[in-house]
């Protein structure tokens, strides 16, 4: 029975799961931001579904409804107000993530999360003075450090 509720709930849950899977599996930072946007959309749809009524109308009073207000079934306005603010906050969070990605690209020149993590760990090790025998400014030490960490990753896997 393909009832309308099955379609709507599977749409909302499917959207959230697709976004979550993208966040877990992808390596490109920009695509992770897109997955986060999709996850937010799915959660918003789930919230709106929780306030839906089968016979409900939109929570806006029309002039011809003024005479019999108590007979009209309306949808729940509270989840709608919550989702309204959540969407606006979502675009702010998205802009913040985009700004961080721009800084990462300017600093490291790559968008791959694994490479960014390696270089970040290497930079941290250099700044705290751990396990870097030669100067950090020479490209040889950078390459050797990166290769060493790559081999470490391979060993772990």
């Amino acid at each position: 029975m393909p009832a309308i509720e099955v379609v709507l709930y599977s749409g909302a849950i499917g959207l959230s799961i697709i976004g979550l899977t993208g966040l877990l599996l992808l390596n490109n930072v920009f695509r992770m931001l897109l997955a986060l946007v999709i996850l937010e959309s799915g959660v918003n749809l789930l919230l709106i579904l929780s306030g839906f009524r089968l016979a409900g109308v939109a929570p806006v009073i029309l002039p011809e409804q003024l005479s019999n207000l108590s007979a009209i079934v309306m949808n729940d306005p509270v989840p709608q107000a919550l989702v309204l603010t959540a969407i606006v906050i979502g675009v702010g969070v998205q802009a913040l993530g985009l700004a961080m990605i721009l800084r990462i690209k300017a600093q490291y020149g790559t968008l791959n999360m694994l490479k960014i993590r390696e270089q970040l760990e290497f930079d941290l090790a250099v700044q705290s003075g751990v396990a870097t025998p030669v100067s950090a400014h020479s490209p040889v030490s950078l390459a050797s450090g990166r290769e060493r960490q790559l081999s470490n990753h391979k060993d772990e896997q």
Partner: peptide, 11 residues
């Protein structure tokens, strides 16, 4: 379609 016109406009 789910009778939430404010949210639809915002989205």
């Amino acid at each position: 379609l789910m009778k939430a016109p404010d949210v639809a406009m915002t989205e």
